[in-house]
């Protein structure tokens, strides 16, 4: 009897927890789901009131027209471009930002505080009008229509360095670094063989943020990569939306299949890098 009286409120609590998690999940996920609902309807039934809540039958037709029929934008080429640009951005950003963050988190050196505050300050500068001088610079460098215009300037960005510093400050024990030095590792070795593996959760988050940012960057890609063959998916979809003259189904199908990989990547990456206390990541 005693056992029952303890577990009953316990069960209520668990029930309430899952109910609120499920409720939140519904609210958060519904628009994402709705993207696919729109993509699966023909134009005639797309905007019905009350709104469609279930898939229509036109998803395959919309995708088919997008990939095989329309010739206005090279959808698959743009898809590949987006993947390549995002992957290159993520890899370089992870490397340089973890490196910078590591220095600020785990070394004592003259000017460290000033450098940290300086890096933070550059984040505080509103970037809105920078596009004009930045564009001028890219033209002067001859980087228009080159992917590097989107990749290189942000490789060692303040936000990434800041994130990695904050992450590594508490989670990498100094003793471990000293032990590695005694073992004869040089500082680069310590960075790549000790810091990188231990910073995995932080790097996982940075990778996701960077990937999403690169994937969804419209204006930068549109201005810097004007050639349709070398540009990204986001730009191609905007162009297609403009030139396809009311073929919403096709455009929304493109939007949906453009976003889907982000969720899959997140699901896999978060499982790998930032899931539970199972990996035995840090020994205090």
């Amino acid at each position: 009897m005693k056992k029952m009286s303890i577990s009953a409120p316990e069960a209520v609590k668990t029930g309430a927890l899952y109910a609120s998690l499920a409720g939140l999940a519904f609210v958060f996920f519904f628009p994402f789901y709705y993207m696919f609902i729109i993509a699966s309807h023909p134009r005639e039934t797309m905007f019905r009131t009350p709104p469609n809540l279930w898939f229509g039958g036109a998803l395959w037709d919309n995708v088919h027209r997008l990939i095989f029929v329309q010739e206005q934008v090279p959808f698959l080429v743009n898809y590949a471009n987006s993947v390549m640009i995002a992957v290159l951005t993520v890899v370089t950003t992870l490397f340089f930002c973890t490196m910078g963050g590591f220095a600020l988190a785990k070394y004592d050196f003259r000017g460290k505080k000033f450098i940290f505050v300086f890096i933070l300050s550059t984040m505080a500068f509103p970037p809105f009008l920078n596009i004009i001088p930045f564009y001028r610079m890219m033209v002067a460098f001859g980087w228009i229509n080159r992917w590097r215009a989107l990749i290189v300037p942000g490789m060692a960005n303040a936000m990434g360095i800041f994130l990695m510093r904050q992450y590594m400050e508490e989670s990498i024990p100094n003793a471990l670094l000293d032990a590695a030095r005694i073992d004869g590792l040089n500082e680069f070795g310590i960075l790549t063989r000790v810091a990188f593996p231990l910073a995995k959760p932080g790097m996982g988050v940075l990778a996701i943020i960077t990937f999403v940012g690169s994937w969804n960057n419209f204006l930068g890609a549109f201005i810097l990569l004007p050639r349709l063959q070398s540009t990204t998916l986001t730009v191609a979809l905007n162009t297609l939306n403009a030139v396809s003259f009311g073929e919403f189904g096709m455009v929304y199908a493109g939007t949906a299949i453009a976003i889907l990989p982000l969720l899959v990547i997140f699901f896999l990456a978060s499982r790998q890098f930032i899931s539970g206390l199972t990996s035995g990541s840090v020994k205090g």
Binding site: G100, A103, I119, F134, V152, I161, R181, E187, F188, G189
Partner: peptide
């Protein structure tokens, strides 16, 4: 450089400053 604990952190944060000098300073 590799074994110099004093120099290493400067090398590690240098990419930020190099990129900032090239791409960030002019717009600001």
């Amino acid at each position: 450089i590799g074994f110099n604990q004093k120099l290493a952190p400067y090398v590690f944060v240098s990419p930020f400053f190099i990129l900032f000098l090239i791409f960030g300073l002019y717009p600001i």
